[in-house]
C-alpha cells in the first residue's frame, strides 16, 4: 500500500507541526525519530485521522483518508498506541477480539497468533493485571491481528524484555517482508538503523531530515537533533550509532 502525506501542518497553542511530507510504499519501514515533544505521536495520530490537520492531505493508494469510512480506514491502517488502559477489566482475549472488530474472518487467526507469541497463559488474565511489557506485546499482537495494509506503531519497544524486543523487531521485519508497510516511532537510534528503510527526524515539530537510513543517520543530522556528539560506523553491513557527551568548549 502506498501512503502519501503531503504538506501536513498542525498547530495548537504555541506548538506547530510541519509542514511534513512523506511517502511509504508497501514492504517499506519508515522510522520516525526525534526528542520528546517533537510531534512524532501527533503526526501518527493525524495520519490515523484521530486528529485533524490544519493543512495538507493524506492519501492511501490514492484515496484521501477524509473520504474513507472508519471501517475502510481501519482495514488500511492499524494502530499500536503508546498505551492502552482497560478501566472496566477486559481480559486479554477481549482486548484482542476488539482489535479484529472490522475483520470478516474471525478467531482462527487470533488463536494462531496467540500461540505464535506463546501467550496462551495470558489469554484469560485481566488486561490491567499484565506487566508493562506483557501489555505492549498484547497490543502489538492486536495490531498485527488487525491485518491492515500498514501498521503505525508508537514506540513498540518500550517496557519489553530483551527477548521480546528481538521478537518484536523480527515481527516488524516479517510484516515488511509480507509486503505491508510499517511506520514506527522509535527513540533508540540503533533500532532505527537496524529496521528502517527510511527515516524522518523531527525536532520541535519541524522536519530536520528525511531520507534513507544511510542519509539520515549521520553525525551532522544527529547533532542538530540532540545535544550530544555522535559516531556512526558500519559494522558487518549494519550501522552502529554511538552517542557521547558533548565536549564543553
Amino acid at each position: 500500500m502506498q501512503i502519501e502525506v503531503s504538506g501536513i501542518e498542525y498547530s495548537v497553542n504555541r506548538f506547530k507541526l510541519g509542514p511534513v511530507s512523506l511517502s511509504v510504499k508497501g514492504g517499506e519501514v519508515l522510522g520516525i525519530g526525534g526528542p520528546n515533544g517533537s510531534g512524532k505521536s501527533t503526526l501518527l495520530r493525524i495520519m490515523l485521522r484521530l486528529m485533524r490537520p490544519t493543512k495538507g492531505r493524506i492519501t492511501l493508494d490514492g484515496v484521501n483518508i477524509d473520504e474513507m469510512s472508519q471501517r475502510d480506514l481501519s482495514r488500511k491502517l492499524a494502530y499500536l498506541p503508546q498505551n492502552l488502559f482497560s478501566p472496566l477489566n477486559l481480559s486479554v482475549q477481549d482486548v484482542l477480539l476488539a482489535s479484529e472488530y472490522s475483520l470478516d474472518k474471525k478467531n482462527a487467526r487470533l488463536d494462531d497468533i496467540i500461540r505464535r507469541y506463546g501467550i496462551e497463559e495470558l489469554k484469560h488474565r485481566d488486561f490491567n493485571s499484565l506487566s508493562g511489557g506483557e501489555k505492549r506485546l498484547v497490543m502489538l499482537i492486536g495490531a498485527i491481528n488487525q491485518d491492515a495494509g500498514a501498521i503505525l506503531m508508537d514506540e513498540p519497544d518500550t517496557f519489553l524484555d530483551v527477548d521480546k524486543e528481538i521478537q518484536v523487531m523480527q515481527e516488524i521485519m516479517d510484516i515488511r517482508n509480507s509486503g505491508r508497510s510499517v511506520i514506527v516511532i522509535l527513540h533508540d537510534l540503533n533500532k532505527l538503523a537496524s529496521i528502517c528503510d527510511n527515516i524522518l527526524m523531527l525536532r520541535s515539530g519541524q522536519v530536520v531530515a528525511y531520507g534513507s537510513t544511510d542519509e539520515v543517520l549521520v553525525p551532522e543530522v544527529l547533532e542538530k537533533m540532540y545535544s550530544a556528539s555522535f559516531t556512526v560506523e558500519r559494522i558487518s553491513g549494519s550501522l552502529r550509532v554511538d552517542a557521547h557527551a558533548r565536549k564543553k568548549s
Partner: peptide, 21 residues
C-alpha cells in the same frame, strides 16, 4: 456489545479498529 467493549479501551483506539464512535 462488541462496540461497547472496544470503546472501553479509549475512543481513539476504537476508531483505529473501525468503530464509528
Amino acid at each position: 456489545t462488541k462496540e461497547l467493549d472496544t470503546i472501553q479501551l479509549g475512543e481513539d483506539y476504537a476508531r483505529s479498529v473501525g468503530v464509528k464512535v
